[in-house]
Design a binder for these strands. Structure first.
Lengths: 341, 341
DNA sequence: TCACCTTGTGCAAACGATTTACTTTTTTTT
DNA sequence: AAAAAAAAGTAAATCGTTTGCACAAGGTGA
């Protein structure tokens, strides 16, 4: 059996309440008593039972991250890991633990969230994505649980969230291609349910429109955030009579697939097809050729979002949407004139 | 205030104990009562308080993963994510949650573990690495907490763990280079404190010895599991009078750095320097050239280790060491005769 | 009919902390 | 030196469950 607060109290010749106050550094406790009790805690190797503590304090010092749908698939995308790195950094700094949970479908996800929230297992949570008409967001608002979104809610304006200006980001990326003289620019996109996808699509079409360039529906392919998606998209998009000569790709990992697909079809990059993508994961600079990518400050996104949740837990009322700046990192994959190494 | 078991009891006109028994599907409860109580639970949106539950049951359905030292750095290596994917898959399957925690140095790590274990916050845990004379392992054995290691303990024989046969893996990798006619084979290694590093080093030297090839100390460079490590290693290793013509690299990410370093120095791969590395992360096939890598079944490693912990929680006594098979995946980076695409 | 199961339920004591409201002791003020 | 105020500590209630034991009612075998 573990050593409890009573054991410490008995050995120190004081009441449990006193020990509790010593732990909490309560001012009512004399220097001398405090010292003695602490010594005994040390001696007995006492550590407070966190469950008992949570039960009475209604607090757990734990934040949950909900892993969407097929967590396994999702986690194949390094973007999320970089995000989690940021989250973890902020949470450990603040002395919070991170709980990862999920479900295998939307229904199960909601059940998990309900279990954790109603069950009092967590103090707040973080959603790593934002899709339209999400029942989880609805639930969390009703329960008034501190939570923040990475991305933005398509349903509610005032959900605390951390996001990029994805419209502008895609606008910049597309304009970069246009500046390189590209005229036939396609888009390999993600699930259209996601806000991020919709925003980037909008920036893309805005740039095309302003430049007076055509947006052909056959140049736009939808997929998942997976390598295979990009890979498969190439077969279809390049087989049409007049294929694009440049592609905006929703995500680096997808772009890796695009690269692989194009290589197999015998296209050279960037000479035949230029590529720009998003997220700028570490490996974007290691492919051949290195990929031009919009750095969205992924780590910052996670770090800031956690900070937001932590603030909300401290009763700070937040309904803000915070924007993390992006930055186009130009590499070989998008350049018209290239001198190969 | 949340709805408690008492609220349900009152509304159903039964005692809290009865409600508790309904939840647990106790056989002594009548069909009729059970039905009525369940109906009311549904109606009130009742969810049991997990903290109270844990307090009395001394169980949390949570497994912790301890992130070593500078978690931030560590997480730059994709190997760990693949590991965590496996862990997560197993845990969610079994209805367990995953808690991630860590510290910024060995001392803090131990404190975190102590807090979680003594504080009763977790049912078991998983260590993602194994270094020599680790105080955490020592602590966990004393406390008799269910835990498993990925890798193997250098201090104790009987620590439940899941590992590869790293000696054999490195032996195979090195022999592959030898079979390609390589005579001057170097090794870019990881922290020598880790069992994995030591084992691979051994397999490497064994293969060289058997083939009657020299092992020059100046061909062996130690580093971290980081891209920079591999990158920096190249400057020193290639500047010597008789540099190696082939390299065994401890990890794919490090190999990425190696590739980058060699490219900058003007070496061609594999014509000038052949490369073999370990872990076979998804991106190993996307670099230019694609990297020959030993697939160690990373996902399996995580999956199996979690399973082991779960079994131990179910009182199954485990002191076994389980070996996950490895497999050399040959790609361009190691081949002597190459026809470029 | 009686002693004895079986079945269904309730009471109350844990689990290990925190916290409110008191009590006791010491110090200060007048 | 008495009264008031401050300091230090305690007892007991509470958080929301589970569970051992008691008990009532109905059924069974002799």
């Amino acid at each position: 059996m573990n050593v409890t607060i009573k054991d410490v109290a008995k050995k120190a010749g004081v009441s449990p309440s006193t020990v509790s106050r010593v732990i909490a550094d309560h001012p009512r406790i004399s220097k001398e008593t405090s010292r003695r009790v602490k010594e005994i805690m040390e001696e007995l190797g006492y550590h407070p039972n966190l469950m008992a503590k949570s039960l009475v304090s209604r607090t757990t010092r734990t934040i949950a991250v909900i892993l969407p749908k097929p967590a396994e698939e999702l986690l194949l995308n390094f973007f999320f890991y970089e995000l989690i790195r940021g989250v973890l950094a902020q949470l450990t700094r603040a002395g919070y633990d991170l709980l990862m949970a999920g479900g295998s479908n939307e229904q199960e996800e909601l059940e998990t969230v309900t279990r954790l929230v109603r069950g009092g297992r967590i103090d707040g949570l973080l959603l790593l994505y934002s899709r339209s008409s999400d029942p989880i967001i609805h639930f969390l608002r009703n329960e008034k649980v501190p939570f923040a979104l990475i991305g933005r809610s398509l349903d509610y304006e005032d959900v605390p969230s951390v996001d990029n200006d994805n419209v502008q980001a895609a606008y910049d990326a597309t304009n970069h291609l246009i500046a390189q003289g590209q005229k036939r620019i396609g888009f390999v996109t993600g699930p259209t349910k996601l806000a991020m996808t919709q925003d980037r699509m909008m920036g893309y079409s805005k740039a095309l429109a302003e430049a007076g360039l055509p947006l052909k529906q056959s140049w736009v392919v939808e997929g998942e955030f997976l390598l295979e998606s990009g890979y498969r998209a190439m077969a279809s998009i390049m087989s049409q009579p007049e294929p694009p000569t440049a592609l905006v790709v929703i995500d680096d990992v997808v772009a890796f697939g695009v690269l692989k697909g194009l290589a197999e079809l015998g296209y050279r990059i960037p000479q035949d097809i230029a590529i720009v993508s998003f997220n700028n994961i570490a490996l974007a600079e290691l492919t051949m050729p290195p990929i031009t990518s919009v750095d969205v400050g992924t780590y910052q996104l996670g770090y800031t979002a956690s900070q937001m949740v932590l603030r909300m837990i401290q009763q700070v009322d937040i309904t803000a949407r915070q924007i993390i700046p992006h930055r186009l990192v130009v590499r070989e994959s998008s350049l018209r004139t290239v001198s190969h190494v």
